[in-house]
Nucleic acid binder design. Structure first.
Lengths: 238, 238
DNA sequence: CCCGCTCAGTGCGCTAGCGCACAGACGCCA
DNA sequence: TGGCGTCTGTGCGCTAGCGCACTGAGCGGG
């Protein structure tokens, strides 16, 4: 079940890395490195959120759960962000589910610690604000995307977003899993994935996806990908 | 074109009303009452946001625009909230469009004024944080709703959310307009609306909707309505 | 080595919703 | 009062995606 990884780019959490040194050092004492294993549920709808997580090379999916077999990924959190943003907003119960979509490490912090740290108007506060905006944009855009675009285009978009956060060209994900992310049938993913494979954009076997042609994938995806990507990059840049 | 209104409940903005007296009085000097006419676009995707708006009896729709005829309402703002939340998050450009869906009055404030006011850790700051969470929940839930539920159920949900914010049982909205909100064809709205009319839940003629049986509408809607409603009420209550 | 489990591929009938085209109803205004 | 623009209802053919059922391929454990 372990994920074969070839590192690509720095492994740490970029949101934390964007903090000025002094503030980061103060925070560091409250941060704890943890392993997130694939499939772990960090919190469920209605659960109190005890910790927030800053992924390093792990990925967390935010799911809206309408029924047990009807789930939709509304947001995706990698090393550019933080899972458990509700805590920052003063609410420690979320209506979503946070699920580990890619195993790896993350820095975690107790919810009350984050609350007191972010209660000061420092760089962390400012960054989390801008991250909130980025996430809001991501959720809005993918809501519209899910409404208007075909499964093929959405799958390509989703793979790109995952690829960006994975740090490797090869990752383990079953069609069944992806069907829960895109909110479609497993068979629909099968069809869309083999379409992408036919075009030599990806290679696919028994839960192992390899990205072969990233530019091609970007062409196959709707432009929603670029909009979301731009927003998410700009908040760390500026 | 004016909207026949019978007042139901207090007309002012409830988010502002939840502020402690002192803070409200300080804010008041920067607030200005404006008329929002139906159809006005407060800002478009990519536009700088010059003012934020706290609706009184007006309603603002937040739309994600994929193509000119492909729009989807991702959020709805009435007297419980504020349009232009991005400003609070330190970003004065949004990827959405804000469109006046129900004419009426609103309190508006210059973006820079809001920024400096909410840069202090007071009640406004705390309220806007919780409102952000509420909006995030609303967007997530309706994203899933749009994916899984029928047009009929979604129309009922949407009418309830509108009704809550309208302060009257009768309001002017064409099917064409609603089709842009739900991201479906106008004909689809026609079918769904006449279904609701057949059940005597609403009455409908030439752009004038009358809610006849609210409990019935709630039964016809998916439970997404209640989830969103609960979240949005709780943030003002607590 | 084979059994059983997990994943992926496929075919079939069905439905919701799309796109288009047109008709009828209402209301406003000259 | 007549004409025109706006709004709604409806019919028709089409497609994407659903639900179901089953096959087959790989993989791991007894």
């Amino acid at each position: 079940m372990s994920n074969p990884k070839v590192m690509r780019g720095p492994p740490g959490n970029r949101l934390l890395a964007a903090l000025p040194r002094g503030e980061y050092q103060r925070l560091q004492r409250k941060l704890e490195m943890v392993d997130l294993t694939f499939g772990k549920i960090l919190y469920n709808a209605g659960d109190p959120i005890t910790h927030v997580h800053f992924p390093n090379d792990s990925i967390v999916s935010l799911l809206s759960v309408v029924a047990e077999r009807s789930t939709l990924e509304v947001g995706i959190v990698g090393n550019e962000g933080m899972a458990g943003l509700s805590v920052f907003m003063g609410v420690d119960i979320s209506r979503n589910r946070a699920l580990v979509q890619g195993g790896g490490t993350a820095m975690r912090m107790r919810a009350d610690a984050l609350r007191s740290e972010s209660n000061q108007l420092g760089a962390l506060h400012r960054l989390l604000h801008r991250y909130s905006h980025s996430l809001l944009t991501q959720i809005s855009q993918s809501a519209a995307c899910n409404r208007f675009h075909t499964v093929d285009a959405r799958l390509a978009r989703w793979m790109l977003m995952t690829h960006d956060r994975m740090g490797t060209d090869k990752f383990q994900l079953t069609q069944d899993f992806m069907s829960n992310m895109l909110g479609v049938r497993r068979e629909g993913v099968s069809k869309a994935a083999s379409e992408l494979q036919k075009k030599k954009l990806i290679h696919y076997t028994r839960g192992v996806i390899t990205v072969l042609n990233r530019e091609g994938l970007e062409k196959a995806a709707c432009k929603c990908y670029q909009i979301i990507k731009d927003e998410s990059e700009s908040f760390l840049g500026a």
